Simulated scan of single mutants.
Amino acid sequence: MGFHTFDPERAANLEDASRFRYCSRDELVAALDPEPEDRVADLGSGTGFYTREVAPFVGRVDAVDVQPQMHEEFRDRGVPENVSLVTADVADLPFGAGELDGAFSTMTFHEFASAESLAAVHRVLAEGGPFVAADWSAAGEGEDGPPVDERFDAEDAADLLADAGFAVERATDRPETLFVVARA
């Protein structure tokens, strides 16, 4: 896999509402199934496109991105009161064991999916806490997103998560994306 990050010079592209055709707010929130007081993390939050969508349904969202420039873009667009910006690599999440009620990743799983990173996600999630990933699928045509050879398919993503200790509830390849729901 490529394990690269999104070019901050193209950050405006992350605010395109057509992204909802790949993962809607309703699909994401339904898979997270949060309680109003839950604390969740958006892993690879970028400019906050999906973070802002999830924020009204939880007590707190930690928007995690490895690139400080993405947080600058997020600030320029407005950060909801219940969102904290966290600059960190997913392999080095600054949360205690079981501190988060859930986590999600939209179109960034391919950027960080490694044994080390997924172990870190598992560590910070409460027992039974969901991890939801919508990402570009290796089974897709490559009409958008990264090159197909830098992607996982749903089966590979599920295997990586299972190897990290997650119980995979759903792993589906769709026309261009995958959708995975797993629990710590």
Results as ranks from 00 to 15, higher is better:
M1D: 12
R21A: 11
Y22N: 06
S24N: 08
R25K: 11
E27M: 04
V29T: 02
A30V: 10
A31P: 01
L32D: 01
D33A: 15
P34G: 10
P36N: 04
R39E: 15
V40L: 14
A41N: 00
T51E: 11
R52K: 09
R52H: 05
V54C: 05
G59Q: 15
R60P: 04
R60V: 07
A63S: 10
D65H: 13
V66H: 13
H71R: 14
R75F: 09
R77V: 08
R77Y: 12
N82H: 09
V83F: 06
S84G: 07
S84F: 06
L85V: 05
L85C: 08
T87I: 14
A91F: 07
G96V: 01
D101A: 12
G102P: 02
S105N: 04
S105W: 05
T106D: 00
M107E: 12
M107L: 14
M107T: 11
M107S: 08
T108G: 12
F109I: 07
H110R: 00
E111H: 14
A115D: 13
L118D: 02
L118A: 03
A119V: 09
V121R: 04
L125N: 05
A133P: 01
A139L: 08
A139Q: 13
D144R: 07
P146W: 12
R151E: 10
D153Q: 05
D153R: 02
D156M: 08
A157G: 01
A157F: 00
A164C: 10
G165C: 10
A167I: 11
A182L: 13
